[in-house]
Computed example of a mutant assay.
Amino acid sequence: MRAFIAMAKKEFLESIRTYKLLIVATVFLLFGMLNPITAKIMPKLLSSFMPEGMAITPGEPGTVDSWIQFYKNMSTQLILFVIVFSGIVSNELTKGTLINMLTKGLPRKTVILSKFTAIISIWTLSYLICFVITLIYTRYLLPGELPNLPFAACCMWLFGVLEISMMLLGGALSGSIYGSLLLAVGFAGVLMLANIFPKLEEYNPYLLSTGCVSLLTSERVPSDFYVSIIVTIAFILLIIISSICSFNKKQI
């Protein structure tokens, strides 16, 4: 346990020293402010860009418009997060910084688990920053109440955990940044393609990313997501176990 805590602390300190935490937190903070502001001014922007003589009467923006922006932009933020932290495993392998620790008895599974814990904690912190800032600005600019708001937020967060886990597996398998990115992006692409089959939608983790707004508009209820959540958690556990097994066989 002491080794695990020490390794997790090392990852946190490294993310601070390399400014990765600052970059990600700043971007998520900015998007948190932009989500409700964009929703507020979008109708006016659309009207101003219309050709002369063409009339458009956009509806008044509401609370849900701000959260539509939140989930639409969160996909971009997740991609950025994966890019920034894609070298969390490969950099250690390239630089050989783990050799001394592993030869002194540090279990290899501790390396993977501590990295997973650290990066998910950073993802959670960044996500909370964006969510809270969006919530505060929305309450001020576009006040209103929405059903299932916390549950929808948790769904998107869990999908992010899945993608980050796949990124970690990519690093353990390939030992390169490109391998981490390709596996994470490729996995998301497979889930997206699988979503075209209606019978698979209930089981597809991609529903956690695409179905959040339908929760806020009451088109769906939380129980519609339960199967997808169970499948996603099972995927995450399987991916972490696979990452540990792959890293155990890795030549360092």
Results as ranks from 00 to 15, higher is better:
residue 95 K to V: 13
residue 118 A to P: 01
residue 123 W to V: 05
residue 94 T to S: 15
residue 103 T to E: 10
residue 99 I to Y: 14
residue 101 M to Y: 13
residue 103 T to R: 15
residue 114 S to Y: 10
residue 109 K to E: 13
residue 110 T to N: 15
residue 95 K to R: 13
residue 101 M to W: 11
residue 95 K to N: 13
residue 111 V to S: 12
residue 110 T to E: 14
residue 115 K to W: 06
residue 123 W to F: 11
residue 104 K to C: 11
residue 100 N to S: 15
residue 114 S to C: 03
residue 119 I to S: 09
residue 103 T to F: 12
residue 119 I to N: 07
residue 111 V to P: 08
residue 106 L to M: 09
residue 105 G to P: 11
residue 104 K to V: 09
residue 117 T to H: 06
residue 112 I to H: 04
residue 103 T to I: 03
residue 107 P to R: 01
residue 118 A to T: 00
residue 100 N to G: 10
residue 117 T to C: 10
residue 114 S to P: 02
residue 96 G to R: 06
residue 101 M to Q: 15
residue 99 I to F: 13
residue 108 R to M: 06
residue 95 K to M: 07
residue 112 I to F: 04
residue 97 T to C: 13
residue 123 W to H: 08
residue 102 L to C: 09
residue 100 N to W: 15
residue 118 A to K: 04
residue 118 A to I: 02
residue 93 L to W: 05
residue 93 L to P: 08
residue 114 S to T: 01
residue 102 L to T: 02
residue 121 S to K: 04
residue 102 L to W: 00
residue 97 T to Q: 10
residue 124 T to M: 14
residue 123 W to Y: 05
residue 100 N to F: 09
residue 99 I to P: 05
residue 120 I to K: 01
residue 125 L to W: 10
residue 97 T to M: 11
residue 94 T to V: 15
residue 106 L to A: 07
residue 109 K to T: 02
residue 108 R to T: 00
residue 116 F to P: 01
residue 116 F to E: 04
residue 122 I to Q: 06
residue 109 K to W: 12
residue 97 T to R: 10
residue 121 S to E: 06
residue 114 S to L: 12
residue 105 G to M: 08
residue 119 I to T: 05
residue 107 P to H: 07
residue 115 K to A: 06
residue 110 T to G: 05
residue 112 I to T: 05
residue 100 N to R: 14
residue 117 T to I: 14
residue 113 L to K: 05
residue 100 N to P: 13
residue 97 T to W: 06
residue 124 T to G: 11
residue 95 K to E: 15
residue 120 I to L: 12
residue 96 G to N: 04
residue 105 G to K: 03
residue 125 L to V: 09
residue 110 T to P: 11
residue 118 A to D: 02
residue 113 L to S: 03
residue 93 L to N: 02
residue 112 I to Y: 00
residue 100 N to H: 14
residue 99 I to C: 05
residue 104 K to H: 14
residue 109 K to S: 08
residue 117 T to K: 04
residue 102 L to D: 05
residue 95 K to G: 12
residue 108 R to L: 08
residue 100 N to Y: 14
residue 122 I to D: 03
residue 125 L to Q: 03
residue 104 K to A: 10
residue 98 L to S: 08
residue 125 L to G: 07
residue 115 K to M: 06
residue 101 M to D: 12
residue 99 I to Q: 14
residue 96 G to L: 09
residue 96 G to W: 04
residue 110 T to I: 15
residue 103 T to Y: 07
residue 102 L to N: 01
residue 107 P to S: 03
residue 94 T to L: 12
residue 98 L to E: 11
residue 104 K to I: 02
residue 107 P to M: 06
residue 119 I to C: 10
residue 94 T to A: 12
residue 102 L to Y: 00
residue 122 I to C: 04
residue 102 L to S: 05
residue 101 M to P: 02
residue 105 G to T: 00
residue 122 I to T: 07
residue 96 G to T: 04
residue 115 K to V: 07
residue 120 I to E: 02
residue 125 L to P: 09
residue 120 I to V: 06
residue 95 K to C: 03
residue 108 R to C: 12
residue 102 L to K: 01
residue 117 T to S: 09
residue 99 I to W: 08
